[in-house]
């Protein structure tokens, strides 16, 4: 395959970025998208004339679609044209010979560009640190089978827990909302008895942190679900909203009844 690539280059977070055009030839259709970028980088290194050259920086790690590190915006879509696929699992057979491909980093305020196609997603870690866990310490817990859980609930919790934290949902959203990411974590725990103890604190703390970090409101366009490489459902957002308001009502009721335990 012959390809023309328009790639976003940006020295660092503060520098001004620009598109650069690169030509590639003889790319096998069985090659993965990231391997195609490896070949381009190899070509840049071998280019003897234009010293000093610099390779194109992009995040990647497992290349099996599970670590969530890869994050490319390809022809206007997070993770490219294939439904339910991370960039690392995307293969060149989904492109045509002679195609021009535009590659950008995630574009969202809370995800500043580090260099070229790399962004900083520390904001996601901060949301999890605000409450995306059960506060159990190591040791002193009951036998695993002491807590039976309906298979259906466990399966739904697993569906939500499959989120890889890549940030495609944010990149896809015109409001740069992190609702799907937060909802997936809130849902996982809302569906399990282990998550009930801190349900109220969790949903409020995570939503507050999300707002504080500058993620926008839900656009209700469901672009997040459409672009999620793990097909996380927007039903999780509905579940989170229920959780948020029912916990808010419980809190209000408790305050009214004079407990002041809120």
């Amino acid at each position: 395959m012959k390809l023309t690539l328009k790639i976003w280059r940006q020295e660092n977070a503060k520098a001004k970025g620009r598109f650069e055009t690169y030509k590639l030839d003889n790319i096998s259709s069985d090659c993965s998208f990231l391997e195609m970028l490896d070949i381009l980088n190899e070509q840049l290194v071998n280019d003897q004339i234009k010293l000093p050259v610099d390779t194109i920086s992009f995040d990647h790690d497992c290349r099996e679609g599970i670590c969530g590190m890869c994050s490319l915006y390809i022809n206007g879509r997070p993770h490219g044209p294939e439904q339910g696929t991370t960039v690392c699992q995307l293969h060149m057979r989904h492109f045509k010979d002679g195609d021009t491909i535009t590659i950008e980093p995630w574009r969202a305020g809370p995800f500043p560009v580090v260099k070229d196609l790399m962004v900083d997603r520390l904001a996601f870690d901060k949301i999890i640190q605000a409450g995306g866990f059960t506060s159990v310490s190591t040791g002193g817990v009951p036998d695993a089978n002491a807590i039976p859980i309906r298979k259906e609930d466990a399966d739904l919790a697993m569906d939500a827990a499959a989120c890889i934290g890549c940030g495609a949902c944010v990149a896809a959203c015109k409001n740069a909302s992190a609702m799907l990411f937060v909802a997936a974590k809130v849902s996982q725990f809302a569906l399990l008895p282990q998550g009930q103890i801190e349900a109220r604190e969790r949903v409020h703390a995570m939503v507050a942190k999300m707002d504080e970090l500058g993620f926008g409101n839900c656009s209700n366009t469901y672009a997040c679900e459409a672009e999620c490489p793990k097909n996380i459902s927007v039903e999780n957002i509905a579940r989170m909203n229920r959780e948020y308001f029912s916990q808010a009502i419980t809190k209000a009721n408790r305050n009214q009844s004079g407990g002041g335990a809120g």
Binding site: T134, I149, K151, A154, Q188
Partner: peptide, 13 residues
């Protein structure tokens, strides 16, 4: 296994 279940790891059931 006990620890992971307490953390809310959704093991197959």
């Amino acid at each position: 296994i006990d620890q992971c279940v307490a953390q809310g790891v959704p093991f197959a059931r």
